[in-house]
Simulated scan of single mutants.
Amino acid sequence: MSRLEHQFTVQFWGVRGSIPSPGTHTVRYGGNTPCVAMQVGGNRLIFDGGTGLHVLGQSLLSQMPLEGHLFFTHSHWDHMQGFPFFAPGFVKGNSFKIYGAIAPDGSTIEQRLNDQMLHPNFPVPLQIMQANLNFCDITPGQPIHINDITVETAPLNHPGEAVGYRVNWLGGAAAYITDTEHFPDRLDENVLWLARNADVLIYDSTYTDDEYHSPTSPRIGWGHSTWQEAVKIAKAAKVKTLVIFHHDPAHNDDFLDKIAKQAVEQFPNAIMAKEGLVVNIPVSVPLSESLSVS
Rank of each mutant, 00 (worst) to 15 (best):
T33A: 05
K97T: 04
D199K: 01
V15E: 04
V200S: 07
T139D: 08
F122A: 12
A234S: 06
P34T: 02
A37G: 03
P249L: 05
F86T: 06
Y165P: 03
F135I: 02
R186P: 00
K240H: 07
P218W: 08
Q116F: 14
E289H: 05
V10C: 13
I271G: 03
Q266V: 07
V191W: 02
P286G: 02
V293G: 08
V163T: 08
E189W: 08
M80A: 14
F255T: 05
E189H: 13
S107V: 11
P268K: 01
A263L: 08
R16E: 06
F83R: 12
Q39W: 09
H25D: 15
G171I: 03
E289R: 09
K92F: 15
D137W: 01
V15S: 04
I244L: 15
M80I: 15
H182G: 12
L277Y: 05
V231W: 00
I259G: 01
F183Y: 13
V285T: 15
K258V: 10
A87C: 07
L287K: 14
T206F: 00
L287I: 13
I202S: 11
D248N: 15
H119M: 14
E189M: 11
Y29A: 08
S217V: 14
H247F: 07
Y176C: 14
F96C: 06
V279D: 06
I259K: 00
L56W: 07
Q262W: 11
G23C: 10
C136Y: 12
S288W: 11
R44E: 03
V231L: 05
G68R: 08
I128S: 10
H74N: 15
I233H: 03
E110F: 14
T9I: 05
V293W: 12
A270H: 04
Y203L: 15
F72I: 12
N252S: 11
K274T: 11
D254S: 13
P268I: 04
L70G: 05
P215L: 07
L194H: 02
K238S: 14
A37K: 09
G30L: 06
H119Q: 14
G276S: 02
I149S: 08
I46W: 02
D78R: 06
M129E: 10
N132Y: 05
A195H: 04
Q116G: 09
F47C: 07
D253Q: 07
N280V: 12
F90G: 07
Q58E: 12
A87M: 11
S205A: 10
N252R: 12
Y29L: 09
V200I: 15
A154W: 01
I202V: 15
R44S: 05
D179G: 14
I144G: 03
P286M: 00
L4D: 12
D210Q: 15
Y212T: 11
H158I: 08
I244P: 01
T180E: 03
S75C: 15
P88Y: 06
S288R: 12
Q127H: 00
D115A: 14
T153S: 03
Y212P: 11
S75K: 08
K97G: 00
A237G: 00
P184H: 09
G30S: 06
P268Q: 00
P104T: 08
D204Y: 04
A250I: 12
G30E: 05
N114Y: 12
L201K: 01
D115G: 08
G141M: 05
G23W: 09
Q11P: 06
P249N: 07
I102Y: 02
P184A: 10
Y165L: 02
L53C: 09
